[in-house]
Design a protein around this nucleic acid. Structure first.
Length: 820
DNA sequence: AACCTTGGTGTTTTT
DNA sequence: CACCAAGGTT
């Protein structure tokens, strides 16, 4: 490999320095990923066994990408490198050895919701008022204690005020409950792995010898327990390379300790330090804007990013009257750029401080029919139907998990109510058995009556699945899930208890889960070419518990991306919009009011991260007032905008509101169709057009849920050459030109729901892109031939004869079929 | 036992 | 506003 051709001198040095502790201070856009991948490739090339390399990345997505890129360079061995996140790495280690700590290897992983439930129950049990002791606050105490490796006993000892004492007490109880349920929360994964290493020298020695070369990306965001984990592993060979940028440390709230990177040279006195300061990503203007902002932080490692890139255009800044105008401006701007062929939709990202800000922008996107993807928000895996199914799977895997048993024991309804359940609970507690075991032998519970039969039938159904897994009767996890759903009648339960749209949504999500399982099976087979068996149920549960929102984001289809500034870390886009640049929002209330310089500096780093995502074009927007926390409030322009050197901004009205007439608009788009037609005032408010007479914009037209009977005339217009119609989520492949009359349902909870169901209506129809006789492929059932397509009032159903699975009738809305 | 209404509450960011 | 929890009703 002639590496010098591909790397600058500093990068080259970092790649070649494979032995001993190494700190790479990599400024934003300085080719960090390039260095890491070439470094791993070089190591493999120079004879180091890929089996001895551990690379910790921040997300699973980054891990997959890194493996792929290494593979592209060396062509072999990349799949033997252990690349994954802290949490996944620890989960894998614990699945093998946690019995040494008294847990069972089939442990469940609890998410934040689960943890919150446990805390709530504990508060109730000990008669503590949840107002005086907010579960959220308690949880954050528990979490930071775990991150700092403080035991409940120590926490109780050091607690001074009443709240601290009670929190420490709940912490102790919480640990007990999780242990009894054989469950681990996110923090436990790290903490218990460190405990394991300290307890078992054999296990530690084993992993030390395995991971002789360790690489940690995004090192500025590691917390104390992660630091210990790495230090324990690396202490024998000391081949530890950490990569990071202290200016991009944005996870203090979850325990990240910026001192880990600032003090690296103190912890490893013989550490070699390399600074990467040449930026290859952004225009000079963008880079200077970022430098101008971050310069206001003190106590950073001194570095100056520079670039040979062009100046580029200036930073655009606009302030609007409301968040709605702001959103409309951004959406119009993207529309215009795309139409002018300045860029593709997928080149544009809209970033915001808080997830709820996505709402206003999403509405504008839907109004203009621009395809988009929202990363994050309500996590797929925290949806009710998904949690239900996963709770069944977790119960099958781990019978001690009372929390998940409670969730599903009467879902779908099987007539097991609170009274009989509390008897079962009491029985379990008195006999020191799990709730599940109590249910299984419900006939032994005193005075329980006819609920006993229902309970034991529920429990034995679960047991049957357990046995069948042990007997290897299921080919794969999708099959297991499908049979489970059949057995418990989940689909029927959803259809009976939700209205049609909602039911369709939920069933689509379940279908998505099955697809994810199928995809995971494939990925597992690729990653473990030697494996004779597929992944276990525990493997799958690991995977789904530890996915980040960003991991499953589809970046390749041409859609505008919307995400929080946090999620955008590590990514780059030609065109970046940051909305909500307001003091009080960004920087947030807390940091403004508390005036804690640490909070404020972290917000500023977040601004720095946001700005440096942009390659060519950066647009910052603000609203002078917005509806927040249930009321209208006024917001001044963010100090971070003011910290950008004035000459870099394009706006002549820099600190004045852009009046609505100044919003550049694209008139042709709004003539003839669109929501605006049904109400000129709504149109005016959202697009910047004033209706004749200049009346004030008080009406929100059909988007107002107080006018439920409104009928919107919508033309779904093709927005690309291929003529696709889009909604959030999956794109649909055909282009109906028809004008659809869609009633806005009175139950619509919000204007957003109304808009969504409108675009979904068109989406569903257009989803059928195949006809009788077509050969199609399905993610689970592989290939087959369409023999029949039927529509009735419930929807469209496709009959397909699959090569391997025979005839199936699938709901056209959910089946993801590709024409071959 | 299941459903519906009301009221009170909270509000960053995420594995 | 939007979500959840508790209480009252069928």
């Amino acid at each position: 490999m002639n590496l010098e051709r591909y790397l600058n001198p500093e990068q080259y040095e970092a790649v070649m320095h494979t032995e001993g502790p190494l700190l790479i201070l990599a400024g934003a856009g300085s080719g960090k990923t390039r260095v890491i991948t070439y470094r791993i490739a070089h190591m493999i090339d120079s004879g180091i066994s890929p089996y001895n390399i551990l690379a910790i990345t921040f997300t699973n997505k980054a891990a997959d990408e890194m493996r792929k890129r290494v593979d592209d360079i060396v062509g072999f061995g990349a799949d033997e490198v252990w690349v994954s996140t802290f949490h996944s790495t620890c989960a894998r280690i614990l699945r093998r050895h946690i019995d040494l700590l008294g847990y069972n290897n089939d442990f469940s992983i609890y998410d934040t919701d689960d943890s919150k439930k446990v805390v709530n129950e504990l508060l109730k049990k000990h008669d503590l008022d949840s107002k005086e002791y907010p579960p959220k606050a308690i949880l954050s105490v528990i979490s930071s204690n775990k991150n700092e490796m403080v035991s409940p006993e120590e926490a109780e000892k050091y607690a001074k005020e009443d709240f601290e004492k009670k929190a420490a007490f709940i912490y102790r109880e919480y640990r007990k409950v999780l242990f009894d349920n054989n469950a681990l929360d996110f923090d436990d994964l790290l903490l218990l792995t460190v405990e394991l290493f300290r307890k078992s020298k054999d296990v530690l020695e084993n992993y030390r010898n395995r991971f002789r070369y360790i690489l940690v990306d995004e090192y500025q965001d590691t917390n104390t327990v992660q630091f210990s984990f790495i230090k324990l592993l690396a202490d024998k060979y000391k081949n530890l390379c950490v990569v990071g940028d202290d200016d991009q440390s944005i996870y203090r709230f979850r325990g990240a300790n910026i001192r880990n990177i600032l003090d690296f040279e103190k912890n490893y006195p013989d550490a070699f330090v390399i600074k990467l300061e040449q930026n290859y990503r952004s225009t000079e203007n963008i880079l200077n804007a970022a430098n101008g902002v971050i310069a206001h932080n003190i106590g950073r490692k001194e570095k100056t990013l520079w670039s040979k890139n062009d100046k580029g255009s200036k930073i655009h800044f606009r302030q609007f009257e409301s968040a709605k105008d702001e959103a409309q401006f951004v959406v119009n701007d993207i529309y215009t750029k795309v139409r002018r062929r300045d860029c593709m939709r997928g080149d544009c990202a809209i970033l915001y401080r808080t997830n709820q800000q996505s709402r206003e922008v999403e509405e504008a996107m839907l109004r203009e029919n621009i395809p988009y993807t929202i990363v994050g928000g309500t996590n797929f895996y925290s949806r009710r139907e998904i949690k239900d199914v996963l709770a069944y799977l977790k119960t099958i895997a781990n019978g001690s998990d009372n929390l998940n048993v409670e969730r599903i024991v009467n879902v779908p309804k099987r007539g097991i109510g609170e009274t009989s359940l509390s008897k079962a609970r009491a029985y379990a507690e008195n006999n020191e058995i799990s709730l599940f075991d109590a249910l299984l032998h419900a006939d032994r519970i005193p005075s329980i009556g006819k609920a006993a039969a229902k309970m034991s039938s529920f429990a034995s159904d679960i047991c049957v699945f357990r046995e069948r897994i042990a007997e290897e009767e299921f080919d794969d996890i999708p099959e297991l899930i499908s049979e489970l759903l059949d057995k418990i009648g989940y689909e029927q339960y959803i259809k009976e208890n939700e209205d049609k749209d909602e039911a369709a949504d939920r069933l689509a999500n379940i279908d998505e889960l099955i697809s994810k399982a199928a995809y995971y099976e494939e990925k597992f087979a690729e990653d473990n070419p030697e494996a004779e068996k597929g992944p276990t149920l525990q493997d799958f549960l690991n995977e789904v518990s530890l996915v980040a929102d960003i991991d499953s984001a589809d970046m390749s289809s041409d859609k505008v991306l919307m995400m929080t500034l946090h999620s955008a870390k590590g990514l780059e886009f030609p065109h970046v919009y940051i909305v909500g640049m307001e003091d009080g929002l960004f920087p947030g209330d807390r940091s403004v009011m508390s005036m804690s310089s640490e909070d404020m500096e972290e917000e500023r780093r977040l601004a720095y991260v946001g700005i440096t995502r942009a390659k060519e074009d950066l647009t910052l927007t603000a609203a002078s007032s917005r509806f927040l926390h249930g009321r209208w409030a006024n917001f001044p322009i963010s100090r971070f905008v003011r910290e950008i050197p004035e000459e870099l901004l394009d706006s002549s009205v820099k600190f004045k509101r852009t009046s609505i007439e100044d919003v550049p608009s694209t008139p042709s788009r709004f003539s003839g169709f669109g929501f605006g037609n049904s109400n000129p005032y709504a149109s005016a408010k959202s697009t910047g057009f004033k209706p004749a007479g200049g009346r004030p914009y008080e009406s929100t037209g059909m988007l107002d849920k107080n006018k439920p009977k409104a009928v919107a005339k919508v033309q779904i217009k093709p927005t690309s050459q291929s003529g696709s119609v889009y909604a959030s989520g999956n794109s649909a492949p055909t282009a109906p030109k028809a004008v659809a009359k869609v009633p806005v349902k009175s139950e619509s909870k919000s204007s957003l729901d109304a808009l969504k169901s409108l675009s979904k209506g068109s989406d569903l129809k257009s989803n059928v892109n195949y006809k009788v006789g077509d050969r199609v492929s399905h993610i689970k059932f592989k290939e087959g031939v369409v023999t029949e397509i039927n529509s009735n009032e419930n929807g469209t159903y496709v009959t397909i004869v699959f090569d391997e699975y025979g005839q199936r009738i699938l709901d056209a809305r959910f089946a993801k079929l590709n024409v071959l």
